[in-house]
């Protein structure tokens, strides 16, 4: 599903985000990415979602070469990749419902169809009763779950989560991880960047350790 072949990312200032990464993630797999701050975790995820282009090597996602994908196809690629961020990236002036409905509007779903799918997604993350709330009125864990509902409402084949539990207490973190496990169970290829080694170790999944832009250990 995701194939890195000697991929490097060099920024305009000459800094390397990633150096010669080789990595293969099969369809339906789930893996963690760890490493110190600045190791390149976010950079790796950004390349998969085409928020940045690799400067060297070949990155294939879902059969397509990320270096060569024309700009106009980037939106269609991103629809295959659900993204979750530590800072949630919700629209604070829109209700929970509207936040989760945005990816459906983007693909032109009818309001009726949207309604069903938004509620199904909110139900899965346990926020059905909060659909009318504004994000600011929710707790950090709840906001993160809104982000998860938004990332998965269109059922993308790939899910990327960049430090999704960064601000949460251990119990909430575990709940969020359990959600990811459940989605992975139904076939979503899942990649999670996290510092939380204690939690990762409980879950018994492959861990990719980055160090200064290179893979230190798998």
């Amino acid at each position: 599903m995701i194939h890195f072949d000697h991929v490097s990312k060099r920024f305009e200032d000459g800094q390397y985000g990633l150096k010669q990464i080789n990595l293969q993630i099969e369809e339906g797999a789930m893996a963690f990415i760890t490493g110190h701050s600045g190791a390149g975790k976010s950079t790796l995820m950004r390349l998969i979602a085409l928020l940045d282009r690799p400067t060297r090597g070949q990155l294939i996602v879902d059969g397509r070469n990320m270096a060569k994908l024309p700009n106009r196809e980037i939106p269609f690629h991103r629809r295959k990749v659900g993204m979750i961020f530590q800072d949630h990236r919700l629209l604070n002036d829109r209700s929970v419902y509207e936040n989760v409905a945005l990816p459906l509007q983007v693909i032109g779903a009818s309001p009726r169809d949207s309604g069903k799918r938004v509620r199904a997604a909110l139900d899965k993350v346990g926020l059905l009763k909060k659909e009318k709330s504004l994000p600011a009125s929710l707790s950090g864990g709840e906001q993160q779950r809104v982000g998860i509902a938004r990332a998965l409402v269109t059922r993308p084949p790939i899910l990327l989560a960049d430090e999704p539990t960064g601000n949460l207490d251990p119990e909430l973190s575990r709940e969020i991880m359990d959600l990811f496990l459940a989605f992975n169970q139904i076939g979503v290829t899942t990649l999670i960047a996290s510092h939380d080694l204690a939690l990762i170790n409980q879950l018994n999944r492959p861990v990719i350790k980055l160090h200064e832009g290179s893979i230190a250990r798998v």
Partner: peptide, 16 residues
Amino acid sequence: HSEIEITRLVGGTDGF
């Protein structure tokens, strides 16, 4: 601004 950014994240085209 932030809405445009997030719309791009979830795959909104320029046209949209």
